[in-house]
């Protein structure tokens, strides 16, 4: 009986384990491994790559040109994350304190863009921001109304409206990244704030603290693990963003992902692209490890260990 059961459970184990393990190994780890190997390789002719163990690709990645793009990517992702935090925090707070009837709808409203195709959302921004887009159209209308008002009181009309260049620059990239990543920030913040015991905030008010003071000495410290989560969850995809800088950015707003893409699709320098990919991946892992480290420290702190 016992023997039969143990064979059965061993069988169950392998039946459960093999398919996902094989899939991850063959269709995920091996491809990554190949890229990793390529990053130590050299180009041979037009398509061949020989893996010679060279570090030349990494050395090249640390040339000022690429370092600058890396730094710029980190900066853009950082600004995006900060803006998402500033915009998203009040949103999360308002949803947490919304009535039972409203809360699911507000959450749905935050999630819906998250489920909508990234390409479409970026495209929608192009339509809004381009020189003949809605923003410029609206501004032109205001400008012309002002001009008309001036003529009405007998003054010289304003000069004709010059459309603002809102697209194909760094502003558009940050705008687009914030637009796309805001739900990534709001949802973890919501989860963290929702877990917070309200009587702690009430106690703080009761003891004489104002709302801002309560926010910074009670809410933020206690919601810190959630805030860190939100920051990392926003920062990581923003750092590796390809589509937004590609479609909304100008020639000087390339991010690291665009450079990688070019190595593989246009410049045909796979080893160098592979090295850049792995550097991006390491940066991502560092961010995630940082999150694990910070939230563990906080959890231990909260438990007074």
């Amino acid at each position: 009986m016992a023997a039969r059961e143990s064979t059965e459970s061993r069988l169950a184990f392998w039946a459960t384990a093999l398919p996902p393990l094989l899939w991850v190994a063959v269709f995920f780890l091996i491809p990554l491994g190949v890229i990793w190997a390529y990053s130590f390789g050299e180009n041979l002719g037009l398509t061949g790559v020989s893996i010679s163990g060279t570090f030349a690709n990494y050395a090249r990645a640390f040339e000022p040109l690429y370092l600058q793009i890396f730094a710029k990517s980190v900066f853009v992702a950082g600004v995006t994350t900060l803006l998402c935090l500033i915009i998203g925090f009040p949103v999360a707070l308002a949803i947490v304190f919304a009535s039972e009837r409203w809360r699911p709808w507000l959450l749905l409203l935050v999630m819906l863009p998250f489920w909508t195709n990234l390409l479409i959302r970026t495209y929608a921004l192009i339509a809004v921001l381009r020189t003949e887009g809605y923003v410029n159209y609206g501004l032109a209308w205001i400008w012309e109304s002002a001009s008309w008002l001036k003529t009405l009181v007998g003054l010289e009309p304003l000069a004709p409206y010059e459309p603002l260049q809102l697209l194909y620059n760094n502003f558009a990239v940050v705008f687009g990244l914030v637009y796309v990543h805001l739900p990534f920030m709001v949802l973890p913040l919501y989860a963290a704030l929702d877990r917070l015991d309200r009587s702690l905030m009430e106690a703080s008010l009761d003891l004489g603290a104002g709302h801002l003071r309560t926010l910074f000495s009670i809410v933020v410290p206690l919601a810190l693990p959630g805030i860190i989560s939100g920051v990392i969850i926003t920062f990581v995809p923003a750092l590796g963003a390809y589509l937004t800088p590609d479609l909304l950015g100008g020639p000087d707003s390339q991010m690291i992902a665009n450079v990688i893409e070019r190595q593989f699709k246009k410049a045909n320098d796979w080893p160098f692209g592979a090295a850049l990919s792995f550097l991006l991946m390491y940066a991502t892992f560092i961010a995630i490890a940082l999150r694990a480290y910070l939230s563990r420290g906080k959890a231990a702190d909260a438990h007074g260990i």
Binding site: I30, P31, L239, G240, A257, W270, A274, S277, M281
Partner: peptide, 12 residues
């Protein structure tokens, strides 16, 4: 990052 996975699949 998506881009890394993308190029890995391309090479694979």
């Amino acid at each position: 990052p998506e881009i890394c996975m993308g190029v890995a699949m391309l090479v694979f």
